[in-house]
Design a protein around this nucleic acid. Structure first.
Lengths: 339, 339
DNA sequence: TTGAAAGCGCTAACAA
DNA sequence: TTGTTAGCGCTTTCAA
């Protein structure tokens, strides 16, 4: 009986998380002093501080983020809403974002939206509910509810992968319109006139921007396909069934990778029989066969930039200015003169 | 003067976050009732409930996750520690993980470790500090401090992408050793004897397992390279400079993609002159040229399974059993009989 | 330099 | 069915 009670007490003691009070008791000081050791060590006598730090170590104390958050109003994390995690495209942005945020002692919570404004706003709400101090969203297609949400919560929010100084939130990204034109320009300079354009779903506004840039630009045929290597393959089969272009312009590198493979599978040589142009410059694009000509989008720099900008906004209330990053034409081996 | 004070009060009132008490006052009920409307609506009279819900809407109240966490001890998020976000490999796992977790009303915080146990433990500590209720780690290479940390915090933690029932935490993954052997088996069945093995950095234990499986398995030459398409290209150049195999076995599909490209760039046909075999089965692998033969690793299922397992552990204290997922040989067009 | 004490926004006994 | 109240673990005045 007595033993069992002792057991219980012991268990309870073990279950309970060590808290500030325990540390204070162990060090023989008040809770305020322990708190000070954490937040303004300079204001604590060195001897006291050491005693407290000893107690912290001894008790293996881990401060409670929730308790801290409730007092300081800070949770130290931000949320990122991306269309998908299923490809390299956002992975690279997120990798850099996470690194930049970590350097600023912020954490990153990731949520996927599948390019659906409804899902986006729902997940944004969930992030706000759990205390996100800022948000990163992709592109500029928002549900009205989303604007409501961030207005109400006065939530620092940055739109990435796009550029529009007039947009209701700061954008950090590149000029999708210009990038598409540059890609087309490369092909026309090589003498191509009949060009098939392969692109992903236009519910994605960056894709829409890229497509819009090319509309009315000459002898182009447009084909929507899935944003994947597979989509590229299927797109090429659709293209070759009809219109016979001398070049295929893919508005995303993933699509271009599949397109190039399929063109070769159909017995055509790249670029001798068919040029293939991409847009993104994924890490692997330079190492395909043949190496893919494309437009380099500075997504790594973008990730870093967004991390710094959002951190500045969240930490010091410095609302960032819209920031346009340059793209760059990368002519590699998959494009050649029109035969 | 009076006005300015009024202004201040107003400002203060605006700044202040709406809280449960405000809602209660607005609805003319106690805080407990408002709390009940959130947590057990059935126990509140419909009329009262409606009044409270009206007040919530009117005041645009968003409950504080921190305050909730401090009381319930729940933060409703888990952390995932992955080597990198820079490639499709983990993106697919995370995508499924995030979906599964969302279904269980849990959030996912992602941190990258670069396959460094030191970074891993540091980031794990950061995640625990901010209140992660569970952790997902990759493989089985842990710093001793890591085990300390999760033991002390009694933190539900699952190791993924690997399988070992004896490991100190539950594993959910596949048999890397067996998968590598299966890949080799496919090549030897086709008559290949001189085979070059290309693999990523062996500081990654899944890679190490795959390599170890093949050591002493015949006329193989091993080449370590970067875990990227570029690494695959470089690996092939190194291979072709010396030992002349009839097949290249890549222990990751990303490497295989680069290898295949480089083999063709060197003027060799795949698979007529050189077979190339992968291991992973990335979404794009089926759509390369030629389509890559590989071993399919069920990473999507794994992501889902891990989400459910970790949710069960976190929510209902059901520690999951180690779970082995099957891999599958996928013979496509990049492998053929030894010439 | 330190401590006492009043909250932060919420949940959960317990009472009514 | 509803209200009262005691905390959760911490930060932050205010005094000493």
């Amino acid at each position: 009986m007595i033993e069992s009670r002792a057991e219980q007490v012991k268990k309870t003691a073990m279950r309970k998380r060590v808290n500030l009070r325990d540390v204070a008791a162990d060090a023989g000081v008040s809770v305020a002093t322990v708190s000070r050791v954490m937040n303004s060590p300079a204001s604590v006598a060195p001897a006291t501080r050491e005693r407290v730090e000893g107690a912290m170590r001894r008790l293996q104390w881990v401060p409670s983020a929730a308790a801290r958050a409730i007092n300081s109003g800070r949770t130290r994390f931000v949320g990122a809403l991306v269309p998908t995690l299923d490809s390299d495209i956002f992975a690279r942005v997120l990798a850099n974002l996470e690194q930049g945020l970590t350097a600023q002692r912020l954490s990153l919570v990731v949520a996927t939206t599948d390019d659906d404004p409804k899902i986006e706003v729902a997940k944004a709400r969930a992030l706000v509910d759990i205390g996100a101090e800022g948000l990163i969203v992709s592109g500029m297609t928002r549900s009205p509810d989303f604007h409501d949400l961030i207005d109400r919560a006065r939530l620092p929010t940055i739109a990435i992968s796009c550029h529009d100084p007039e947009y209701s939130m700061p954008t950090i990204g590149y000029d999708n319109h210009g990038a598409a034109l540059a890609a087309l320009g490369h092909l026309t300079e090589l003498g191509h006139r009949r060009i098939a354009v392969l692109h992903g779903p236009v519910r994605n506004d960056r894709t829409r921007l890229r497509v819009a840039a090319l509309q009315g630009q000459g002898d182009l045929s447009f084909h929507e396909t899935a944003l994947s290597t597979k989509g590229g393959c299927e797109g090429v089969r659709a293209v070759l069934a009809g219109y016979r272009p001398s070049a295929i312009l893919c508005l995303s590198d993933v699509i271009a990778a599949g397109a190039m493979a399929e063109v070769q599978r159909q017995g055509l040589r790249v670029p001798a029989d068919m040029s293939v142009m991409g847009l993104d410059d994924l890490p692997g694009s330079a190492h395909l066969y043949p190496a893919l000509s494309t437009i380099h989008l500075p997504v790594s720099r973008m990730g870093r930039g967004v991390a710094d900008a959002l951190a500045g906004w969240v930490e010091r209330d410095e609302k960032p200015h819209p920031h346009l990053l340059d793209f760059e034409l990368i002519a590699r081996a998959s494009t050649g003169p029109c035969p």
